[in-house]
């Protein structure tokens, strides 16, 4: 892996978490994929990764979990400097209207995907979110062309003058 980005998946039910991880396998060579079964566990893992110099690119979060809820955690993430740029996605079947409104207005939610999901759909959305994140925040866009949306990344290279004749 020649990049230092990671995807964090937070989901309390282990079968569901495994399903998410299985669907995200195609990104494995380019992004480190981390899993946590509660917000507290996610926070600990996050601390270690950030200390190691890794950067979060995407949080995929369930809502109803023991302890802190997904929406509350996403609000927190959007306010912290180290995580505010990462894409935030809610993958849940149980968020009520109030929670959803909060996620959109306060957590700057990038995507709401209701359960159950189709693998291809999850992959398409993750590709889109990661492409946007990488286009805005990364310098070496070439590293992601094979896995993400190459056309959009080319467009970003062109607009940002990312590479030059040397």
């Amino acid at each position: 892996m020649n990049t230092n980005l990671f995807i964090m998946c937070i989901e309390d039910e282990s079968e569901v978490l495994e399903a998410i991880l299985r669907d995200l396998e195609m990104f494995e060579d380019y992004f480190r994929i981390e899993a946590a079964q509660s917000v507290d566990e996610a926070k600990e893992v996050l601390k270690v990764l950030i200390n190691d110099g890794l950067k979060p690119a995407l949080f995929i979060c369930d809502h109803k979990m023991p302890g802190t809820t997904g929406v509350d955690y996403l609000v927190e993430l959007s306010r912290e400097e180290a995580t505010s740029k990462a894409a935030r996605m809610l993958l849940t079947g149980q968020a009520g209207q109030q929670d959803t409104i909060k996620a959109v207005n306060q957590a700057g939610l990038h995507y709401y995907l209701p359960k159950p999901w189709k693998p291809a759909e999850l992959q398409r959305i993750v590709t889109e979110l990661l492409t946007d994140f990488v286009s805005k925040n990364e310098d070496n866009l070439m590293a992601y062309m094979a896995v993400l949306d190459a056309e959009k990344l080319s467009e970003a290279m062109r607009n940002r003058n990312t590479y030059t004749d040397m």
């Binding site: 190459a150 056309e151 080319s154 467009e155 290279m157 062109r158 003058n161 990312t162 590479y163 030059t164």
Partner: peptide, 16 residues
């Protein structure tokens, strides 16, 4: 234009 900028632009043309 620069060879590199041209290539990036042309990629957006040929990928479709």
């Amino acid at each position: 234009m620069s060879n590199t900028a041209t290539t990036a632009m042309m990629m957006t043309v040929i990928l479709p």
